[in-house]
């Protein structure tokens, strides 16, 4: 297991675990800081072409469509090398937005990181 430097408090922790990358995201995400999130997701977090990118959203009380767009773009890049995007520990408002956007069946949504690593 090895830590991955993200260079932003928006993603305070990230680590490689076998063919998976696990990262925690922290804070409200909207058009103001979604470009910063994109820079991390599209950059260091998928640089190793992980089969699973697991994003722990337990500290994300809110996100908007610009954050969703970043995750969709990340998913599309992951798919090019057979990877999947897992979202864990969703808070109610984030879960609601994914349902409205009909993305709750596009991403793999799990209760926690442990489930994401076995599903």
């Amino acid at each position: 297991m090895a830590d991955i430097a993200t260079g932003t408090e928006l993603v305070p922790t990230a680590r490689q675990d076998g063919d998976a990358v696990l990262a925690s995201i922290r804070g409200e995400i909207d058009l103001h800081n979604s470009p910063e999130l994109r820079g991390v997701l599209i950059g260091p977090l998928i640089a190793s072409q992980p089969k699973r990118l697991v994003l722990n959203l337990s500290q994300v009380p809110y996100m908007d469509s610009s954050a969703i767009a970043v995750m969709v773009e990340t998913l599309q890049k992951l798919r090019k090398f057979g990877g999947k995007l897992y979202l864990t520990n969703l808070q109610p408002r984030v879960k609601g937005l994914l349902e409205i956007a009909r993305l709750d069946s596009i991403f793999v949504i799990t209760a926690d990181e442990a489930e994401a690593l076995t599903k």
Partner: peptide, 18 residues
């Protein structure tokens, strides 16, 4: 129907639905 994998449009969907 909205294609969830195509960017854009989610904001307007929110306005109309909510």
């Amino acid at each position: 129907p909205h294609d969830p994998l195509k960017p854009g449009g989610i904001g307007l969907i929110c306005l109309r639905q909510l």
